[in-house]
Write a protein that binds this DNA or RNA. Structure first.
Length: 266
DNA sequence: ATACCTGTTTCCCG
DNA sequence: CCGGGAAACAGGTA
């Protein structure tokens, strides 16, 4: 599920555990999310520590525990976080359970596309500081978009928007929302976008990222009324602007939704 | 049963 | 070596 704003909100779901001690750690040992780390080391790292703070960058989360222990989480396609009241009995797809006195912090992921990272040290892990600049960072400028468009001139623009190196945190519904607002067909090749359209595209990237954070990210609800988001999932959806039928098709490797009446190849 | 899925990562091709 | 696209990962849901 989760892209930029959903991840930001998911991160807050562990807020009840801040400043609280970790009494026990349980793992679903068979899960693929542990593929890059040592499970024993993970348990040992978190046990008898205190959760100090949390942060997100794009679709990535970082939790800091006392004693220089850092936990990185990526939710993949089906990952989610929850806080459950103690005593809590582990459910089938609970992948990591951090038990505290009054609650359990739970990471579940049935499909196991998520990923857990671990770092021990005084400073923020290097993989965290090396993530690309965020779309809402003041230094995220149109040059990043322009350079990416030139470098990938044969790619459908939809595929470029999903590239985390440039648009850190962009996901499938956000990309469709951006292109719909910029009136660009998702299959348009990056090298074919006119200069004025590039300006519009950049503004809409910022608009959608900001709008998503202020609605979904802050309150966990849906984006504002009138957004494509509300109609893009199922066949038969109507464009909120034109009332015409939306089209759905796989473009850039992902199912895309657009309004043929306002989104063009130009 | 079949197809599909708000995400990466790997493999193969030109 | 680079860019682009398809397949793979695993399991729930329509």
């Amino acid at each position: 599920m989760p892209e930029l704003a959903e991840v930001a909100f998911a991160c807050t779901l562990w807020n009840g555990g801040l400043k609280k001690n970790v009494l026990a750690v349980e793992l679903r040992k068979s899960s693929r999310v542990f593929r890059e780390i040592n499970q024993d080391q993970l348990v040992e790292s978190l046990l008898k520590t205190k959760l100090i703070s949390s942060a997100t960058k794009g679709k990535q989360m970082l939790f800091r525990f006392s004693g220089g222990n850092w936990l990185g989480l990526h939710l993949g396609m089906t990952g989610s976080l929850a806080t459950e009241k103690s005593p809590y009995l582990a459910q089938k797809y609970d992948t990591l359970i951090i038990r505290q006195a009054k609650q359990a912090l739970v990471f579940r992921d049935p499909r196991q596309f998520g990923k857990i990272r671990l770092h021990r040290g005084k400073d923020v892990p290097s993989w965290w500081s090396e993530f690309p600049i965020g779309m809402l960072d003041e230094n995220f400028k149109i040059k990043i978009l322009k350079d990416a468009l030139i470098r990938h001139k044969k790619r459908p623009v939809k595929a470029l928007l999903l590239d985390q190196r440039y648009f850190h945190g962009m996901g499938n519904w956000m990309a469709d929302e951006v292109l719909w607002r910029a009136k660009i067909h998702p299959g348009l090749r990056c090298g074919e976008i006119s200069a004025p359209r590039i300006e519009v595209l950049f503004k809409q990237i910022l608009f959608v990222a900001k709008g998503a954070m202020e609605s979904v990210g802050m309150h966990g609800g849906d984006p504002p009324r009138g957004w494509l988001f509300h109609v893009r999932w199922k066949d038969g959806g109507k464009c909120p602007q034109t009332g015409k039928n939306l089209r759905r098709e796989k473009i850039g490797g992902r199912t895309s939704c657009w309004c043929p009446h306002i989104q063009y190849f130009n």
